[in-house]
Design a protein around this nucleic acid. Sequence first.
RNA 1: GUGGGGGUGGCAGAGCCUGGUCAAAUGCGCCAGCUUGAGGGGCUGGUGCCUUUAGGGCUGCGAGGGUUCAAAUCCCUUCCCCCACACCA
Length: 919
Amino acid sequence: MQEIEKKWQERWEAARIFEPSTDSSKDKFYLTAAFPYPNSPQHIGHGRTYTITDIYARYMRLKGKNVLFPMGFHVTGTPVMAMAKRIAEEDQEVIEIFEKIYGIEKDTIRNLTEPTRLVMHFSNEIESGMKEMGYSIDWRRKFYSNDAAFNKFIEWQFFKLMKKGYITKGEHPVPWCPVANTAIGAHDTKGDVDPEIEEMLCILFRYRDGFIVCATYRPETVYGVTNIWINENATYVKATDGKRKLYMSKDAVKELSLQLELKIEEEIAGKQLIGTEAKNPITDELVPILHADFVDPSNGSGAVMSVPAHAPYDYLALRDAGLEDKYQLKQVLQLDGFGPYPAKEICEKIGIKSQKDERAKDATQEIYKKEAHSGIMVCGEFKGLKGVEAKEKIKQKMLNEGKAFTIYEIANGPIYSRYGGKVSVKIVKDQWFIDYGNPEWKKKAQECLKRMKILPEKTRKDYEYTIDWLKQKACTRSTGLGTKFPFDSDKMIEALSDSTIYMAFYTIAHIAKKMKEEELTEELFDYVFLGQETEKKLPPQAKEMRREFEYWYPLDSRHSATDLVHNHLTFFIFNHTAIFGEALWPRQIVTNGFVLMDGKKMSKSMGNILPLKAAIGKWGADAVRLAIVSGADLAQDTDFNQPAIEGILARMKFLKSAMEKYAAKRDDEKKEQADLWLLSRLHRRCLKVDELYQNLQIRELTLELFYNTVNDLQWYLKRAKEPKLREFFEIWTVMVSPFIPHFAEEIWEKLGKKIYVGDSPFVSIAKMPRADLSKISDEIEDAEEYISKIKEDIHNIMGLLKKEKIECIQLFVAARWKWRLMEIVQNEKSFEASIKKAVQDEEIKTHAAEAQKLIQIYLKNKDANIKRGQDFELMALNSAVHLLETEFKCGQVVIKKEEETEIQKARNAVPGKPAILVV
RNA sequence: GUGGGGGUGGCAGAGCCUGGUCAAAUGCGCCAGCUUGAGGGGCUGGUGCCUUUAGGGCUGCGAGGGUUCAAAUCCCUUCCCCCACACCA
């Protein structure tokens, strides 16, 4: 198996059939799949997208298109660096994964401590895996996203974006490691936790010579504050931000040092604050400062505004302090099913003992959720609004009036980075953005989307939604591989921003990578990609580059897994509309779901990752290709399991042996019923398959081209006295070749000179056969279906008779008058009318009693609708005598008309169902 | 929370947009028979329940309602699962 595959891969490569050149006499088709990120080996999940892309590429080639399918490698950003670093530090977790799951040699792993070595190792691994899969890729255009030539291209892209005003600069909160002094992503944290940033509002209560700062998630409840909680055991400080004095916990000042510039002026023991009063900035009420155990000085500001009516902790703290009666609870929101004080109610209902009770947390969650959603404000300026709406309004109002400011917290903390620091939030100044919020740009992106074909079509909504909410996207990072940000050389362009229009680069990559870096100027790219002439002298390759780009662009199809819809693919749309004219906007996006292993998600922790190369080694590329695409529709996740792939191998074996036995001779002479049937099915399939390919209905295609075809073939071999499969294999091999190209090539070669389809040295570059409509026959197919039903019926009857051996099968086709009667029923539709009409027929009249029963039966199954007549049934049955004799091992099969016999059983015959007598 | 996608037989997975031909394709699994030195493999049949020298009936496509002569399919309500939400490839 694998040797055959290797043979064909070598021949394809030697013949360079997947290295297209610009050829204006041929229609081009340009497609790309998301380029891989080589920081680990590829597994069968990656294979799904590429296989689908390859199937599509191969189909288009069969349709006579000049197809370009290139591939490159994405090495931008920090994951490669992080991975190399972990290996250098001999991180056992990583090493174990590489060894155990991917089966990489220890010595090899030890060598991967440098990002570049790591990249080269895995990109080679991925590339050779893709070759082993038989992907029809033009490897001449391969590049890495940190190649100098590509860097120049990305720089050029950012010049263009800047000129359009799509690059902006500002502040941005990021998860930050104070030890490594860098922004942190999930892959930089211990346990691969994705840090979530949450916004809190700090409300300023006037206090002494400044303000006491209360951090809250629920500013709308500021109307219901009865007091302020602090922790008397913590240290508090008076600090200044330059404009005003702020009272907060010492720990909070430390936590917030990456966000606020605070200077501590004075330390104050928590105890000293107890009993003093502060002023609510909204209601102007004076509220006392009290102690509560639940207050965590390192969280928020270390001071909490107390709203006991709506916050269980606040209520519990009040009760614990025995102050429940001293302070009147104040209702802010009205909640259906609750009285004025939901927090109190829920605590009493569940029976929460104190603020230290674990269940207080759940109660808090429940109340917060309900109030935000269905709570209605009953006081203040925003009376009548829903909780969430009021929250937003109040926040804005207080911010505008300087009564509050925002801070950010790690919501799912504490998180520790791999560098050892506790992750907190830093406000990055000088953060550069791509402004996807620009309304004109948005409009263009929407327009582009509207013109594009999206497969599966139902994902279109996801794009619409994403285009809509996308705002400023940070496009630089302080570290990482890739391209330097041209407007601030300290920064690197991050990975999702340098991969938006690289499809354009493939068209010239094979030329650009041989050029000097300084030749790749803005003017050159302006000329190549935008057609702008310049007075400057361009390098001699410029014209060729322009020709390549003009020929291949726009991109006809973009392929990826569904997870990239919400970022990469949408950025891809945006950037194309920004850089290129409408005529060069992409035409289509195709996305697919993931591959599951035995029903479960593949994951490192479960250890159920199947590396692609291991799978090929075990089952061969063709079987793997089919297995990872055949299980489900595009949108769905598909399951990979052993029984399925073994089933595929068994069928391939069957097909091969059928080909070897029966495909030798011409089969246009001496056709029997079964031949006509098989060809009818084949050509009908040919017609259908073309449409399925157009819309990449992969699952349906594999069903038609593989599973159902095998079933047909099995039926045919049973039916045909003298099987002849030449025409069948010539046509089928071409149709199925996009899925199992090596297998198809092998058959194609064995078939020798083709008779029924155009010959070509490779099936990969043959012509998709056209369906011969004259060979498609409903009647013949109906007859076969009819026969197979009769066969089933006979089986049933034998089961009932519990007969092992039978001597004779007698079949009685219904009398002609029964057809006439059925026709009457179909026209008249009611019993009364039918019987009236029926008795006008002399023959039916003589069978009046029987006719009455029949009418009732016909009326019941009015969909039975037997189109064909008695002659048809006789013909079909006669053609099946041989089949029935062998199938049931009986010496005699007698076929008669009902009219010709006196046997009582024959009266049971109805149109479509002959009476069967088994002796 | 917001947005999107789903819940079908032992399992996977079609069908549902364009209601009837749906007890529900196809595959896997399971059962039986044949083949085979056994095993594997192959072939044939069966695989919701009941009934039957026949092609019949009943229940059924997350739950509950509704529309209709007719619903897995349309409408409403409800429960549950999955995915995405940004500086991360």
